[in-house]
Deep mutational scan, measured.
Amino acid sequence: MQRVNMIMAESPGLITICLLGYLLSAECTVFLDHENANKILNRPKRYNSGKLEEFVQGNLERECMEEKCSFEEAREVFENTERTTEFWKQYVDGDQCESNPCLNGGSCKDDINSYECWCPFGFEGKNCELDVTCNIKNGRCEQFCKNSADNKVVCSCTEGYRLAENQKSCEPAVPFPCGRVSVSQTSKLTRAETVFPDVDYVNSTEAETILDNITQSTQSFNDFTRVVGGEDAKPGQFPWQVVLNGKVDAFCGGSIVNEKWIVTAAHCVETGVKITVVAGEHNIEETEHTEQKRNVIRIIPHHNYNAAINKYNHDIALLELDEPLVLNSYVTPICIADKEYTNIFLKFGSGYVSGWGRVFHKGRSALVLQYLRVPLVDRATCLRSTKFTIYNNMFCAGFHEGGRDSCQGDSGGPHVTEVEGTSFLTGIISWGEECAMKGKYGIYTKVSRYVNWIKEKTKLT
């Protein structure tokens, strides 16, 4: 034993070699072989497995989906700052455009905790909710729209109204504003409101030439003092309507412009014939205590009207009353817009006519005020429907199939267009061939041609 100890002390290297040989010859039971080890760690190889990531292109799944990435790591994937920024906006807080917040056709661009709407022409605001041009839906104005110097929408209202708090709607500024039905039992019968379409306001006024200088022999019209197929109006439903009495009662109609003036057809009036105007009328054979009678003290036909040349060209006249009318729910003026808007309103496509005229061709006159909704007829169809001249200051309205029309005794009465609950004068009943005849239409004086003249002559002093 002493000898062994001496050998170990003198030859430590020998001992180490012996131990190493023993270990190498022993069977290893701690580690699995290569094949079995792979069965336990069965993990798919990654895209760049075996390579240094710093030297390969980034992978979106590896960089940002398996674990949260930084902007720089995302930049490695896209290799483009702009594309990385677009991805980053949604990656950080989701897609803010998912709810489609942009209105009126706006395009949404996502941002971090926010979004941006790219608005089409005519709109602005956070969600493109603000109209900035009158060309689109009248700028959301209830009545009139004008573009300011910086191309912003400025709404306005006709006389007797003021802008509401929203700067879009119009509200009454006087007790009985024009064009409004205020009798409670008839307010439910107000005709369907007309909503502004998209309009090209630059070209809204037709490029028409008034044929002022045409000389033409007097034409022989049949029954051209021209509501057939209409309905009984309720008291106060058309408070701007008046009836004219002269040699015979209810020979023509008219509309209240203001307390002192009536507008009617020029062919209705004769110099030297006494005319009485009755406002607030409903049943011409009954006294309903809503009527107001006034005498006409002055007749002003349009300066281009000449019955000797043509009885229905420039067929418009103004009547001055001896005493002002007292405005109330049964006696209310009709609204008159400017030339541009009167023309736009007419193009809405349908209007209402009213009167006490004959209820059928050569038949009896109506006792109760009649009204009828009539569609506008395109000019080409209008011209083809008659052998008589249709001037540019006239328009056609009615039904091709016949059966409904204005008729004798309705002449001078109103053709009105309702705009968001307020009625505007767009025409004056003038003439036609018979009444409600198939293929024939009622012919009306186009008020847009005469609004400046009306307003100039009827100013209240």
Rank of each mutant, 00 (worst) to 15 (best):
S329G: 14
A337H: 01
Q216C: 07
L60F: 06
I284A: 08
S220H: 08
G280N: 02
G246D: 07
L367H: 15
A37R: 02
F251W: 08
T422R: 03
P120T: 09
T215I: 07
P375L: 07
N213I: 07
R83P: 06
V202Q: 15
F388Q: 15
E320W: 01
G402Q: 15
C69K: 00
E456V: 07
V174H: 07
E79I: 06
V154A: 13
T218S: 12
E420H: 08
V447M: 07
A149D: 14
S184H: 12
G94R: 13
E79N: 06
M65F: 11
I334T: 02
L327S: 04
L318W: 00
C128R: 03
R162Q: 09
N306Y: 05
S184M: 06
D198C: 06
R140W: 12
H267P: 00
I262K: 00
G106K: 03
K45N: 00
K247E: 10
E340P: 07
F424T: 00
L321G: 00
K457Y: 12
E171W: 07
V269G: 04
N213L: 06
K137E: 11
G357D: 11
G272I: 07
I443G: 03
R3V: 14
N100S: 14
S99E: 12
C97S: 03
E286R: 10
A266I: 01
G355N: 08
Y201G: 13
R404F: 15
S169L: 06
T215G: 07
T342N: 03
G58Q: 04
G402C: 06
V296H: 01
I309L: 10
L14E: 02
A380H: 08
A233N: 07
L318C: 03
K438E: 15
H267S: 10
T389F: 14
A37K: 00
T158K: 02
E53M: 00
E433W: 05
E98S: 13
K188F: 13
G280S: 02
E288N: 08
H400G: 14
K188Y: 15
A233T: 09
R83E: 04
L23T: 05
T381R: 11
C407H: 05
A380G: 12
A266M: 04
T417L: 01
V174C: 05
V331M: 01
K459H: 10
G253R: 10
A307T: 07
P177D: 01
E142A: 08
N59E: 01
G94V: 13
P177M: 01
F55H: 13
E73A: 00
K137G: 14
N328R: 00
E340G: 08
C252H: 00
C268K: 01
D110H: 12
S217E: 12
E124H: 11
R358M: 07
E270Y: 07
E418R: 08
L244S: 00
V447R: 00
T461N: 14
G122Q: 09
